[in-house]
Design a protein around this nucleic acid. Sequence first.
DNA 1: CAGCAGGGGGCGC
DNA 2: CGCCCCCTGCTGT
Length: 381
Amino acid sequence: MMASQDSALLEPFTKIKGAERPGDKAREDDGGGKISWVKERNSICDPDAEGLNGTPLAKQLEEGGGNLELSPSPVQGEKHLIMLQTVHLKEGEDDLQGVSQLNIQQQSGVHMVVQRGAGVLQPLVVVQQGVGAQQNLPTGVAISIQDGVYTFHDVEVMQINVLQEKVQIDRSKDLHAVEGKGQQLPPNEEGREKDIFTVEKAKILSCKAKDDMSVSHCEPKEQEEQAVIKNTDTLEAQKNTQHRKKGEKVIFHCDLCAFTSLRMSSLNRHMKTHSDEKPHVCHLCLKAFRTVTLLRNHVNTHTGTRPYKCSDCEMAFVTSGELARHRRYKHTLEKPFKCSMCKYSSVEVMPDMLCPICSCVQTLPVLLFKIWSLNSPHALC
DNA sequence: CAGCAGGGGGCGC
DNA sequence: CGCCCCCTGCTGT
């Protein structure tokens, strides 16, 4: 659920989250995985955070001598949220307090090892696919936090999004990281601002991914456009692109997608779709929504309130769209989607259509299909 | 064919 | 900014 995902990101670092949302199950079947980077500045280094089996991680580290063996998530297809945090070591302090190396045994997941960074350009984190092949570290993933260069080889993950790159050199020299459900490392220094990096390995969804921007199989350019924005300040900075010429209307652009609007307020509202903020929570099921309208419609599904009543029958609906569609099906018999070359028409667009003339199956994307159905359908048969 | 959720245009305050 | 209305997309029966 999105609410849990939100809260997850606010939880202490170095956790792998089971961020799967119920509604995403079908989308996640698309296969593939991904790593995205999220850097947060609101570090919370809660030493009481729970690790495996509910044991406080700090205690686990203490008892385990800093040598963690982390188990993979038992849930196949579950998203793995790996939150990495820079640490600040004093000069000559070349041991990451016993957590400099973490071997994660996974069946098919990511093998992560944190190396001691002798130099600032040396990879700080190595993420490797496979099972415990530490000797093959060079074939893994080298991530240099300091210089922002990311080299990947033979890794299932598809994408890395660098959300913020404000890492100070002196802070990026060393890094500790943990992968594992509910894993957290204690802070090296208390009361000091931390830079948290989040690495998420997740199943690919779709380019749409508006409600979960960290998941995408878009091309690189699209990936940049749909980078995850978690920081509202960044959000504000991103949304102010506008083109103005004398005598022309101002067009406000979203820098994260192709959305444009003549109204700044519309862009402001649109920008919220790029964040996970959902302040309107259903008091009955705790599901969260971005707008009060969505929440109201949702609550109506609980209460059975159906404000939109059909004037021609006894049916009533939660949304006006449902009513309009119902009326097309039952009363007006309107079929807006018509074939221009035959009599075929449809009340609503279907993703896979059988051409009424040649019986070929159209598997075009919906948008392309709309063009097809309204213009020259059989040119694409 | 309906249920549900998400997003955007438009409008009033 | 909040809300209404409409449209769209996905899903289930």
